[in-house]
Design a protein around this nucleic acid. Structure first.
Lengths: 167, 167
DNA sequence: TTAAACTTTCAATAATTATTGAAAGTTTAT
DNA sequence: ATAAACTTTCAATAATTATTGAAAGTTTAA
């Protein structure tokens, strides 16, 4: 496998994985491309490499900037805008986890809290609803806390020591 | 909020959350419905409650059984098949995490390993590709290990003690 | 063995989501 | 103030994914 094959394989795999971390294919591919680039890329560069339209590139770059994982670079003397992504995987993971928690997990926790707090009328079905949604609430809350805690740590040693502990 | 409102709210919220754990809306809604039901439900019951077609119900129940979170119950004297879901949230989380790891994370780890193992030809771009995909490989592998380890624990105490440790 | 009761399959269709491309908008140089 | 260089917006279209419903398949009872 040569450089170009490897690059294409990485970009497309990372792209199709997008759904796993809650972003779309083009967005994930753009991020992947920037992630392995040795220098900032222009919209033109990205369009060309990924064979996607200008509009698509523009919209997805905007979204990546909203997520806080891509930033504009102004290159003196150049009219075009250039883009780079966060290069530290730990930091990248931190930002993604934080955003997903905020956008998706928090709203669900809120609903679970509401639903599990309805008046217990003593019927079996109400009891079951309360019991099960409460259990789900606790689990979701705990998982969310853990993700946030783990991911907030800047150093890697803690992750390693946790792994060792629970092995 | 009365029982029916709460039930609907839970089912539809859990349904739209489906994407987060990698299953589709109908699948997630069926699971949600079973999760708060006090007794096994028939296909008829599910179709009626969720207003979805027979075919859709059948296919999604099958998928839930493939995932291992829904099982058929044979009720003596009854011709219809009845279904129940795993009621323990910890066990549910375990099964889901395991399946997602197997279906989605493992293949990505494999590709990252391949890509990061290409011949280093000494050029800057190849070096960057190797370096970055290797970092991603390590991170993904570590995260996957952690999820599996944590989720394998049957007891909750370990989760709590880990949380305490990293607070 | 037949027929009723039920489930599965799958081609057709609908719903959703992503992508394009060109017009409108913005910035910069002269 | 103008025009060239560039970016954004968004209605139209394409691609993908989910859903239906009816025909085919299966199981059970008599």
């Amino acid at each position: 496998m040569n450089y170009n094959e490897a690059k294409m394989k990485f970009v497309s795999t990372w792209g199709s994985l997008g759904t796993l971390w809650g972003i779309n294919k083009a967005m994930a591919q753009i991020q992947a491309l920037l992630f392995i680039s040795t220098k900032p890329l222009s919209m033109e560069d990205i369009m060309e490499e990924l064979k996607i339209s200008r509009g698509n590139t523009s919209m997805n770059l905007r979204q990546l900037m909203d997520w806080g994982i891509v930033t504009k670079e102004i290159i003196p003397g150049e009219r075009k805008e250039y883009f780079t992504t966060e290069k530290d995987v730990q930091e990248l993971a931190r930002v993604i986890a934080k955003e997903r928690s905020r956008r998706e997990i928090q709203p669900v926790i809120k609903v679970l809290k509401e639903v599990s707090s309805i008046q217990d009328d003593g019927t079996e079905k109400t009891r079951e609803l309360i019991k099960q949604t409460k259990a789900l609430h606790d689990l979701t809350q705990t998982a969310d806390d853990m993700i946030n805690k783990l991911v907030t740590q800047k150093q890697n040693w803690i992750t390693k020591s946790v792994l060792k502990l629970i092995k």
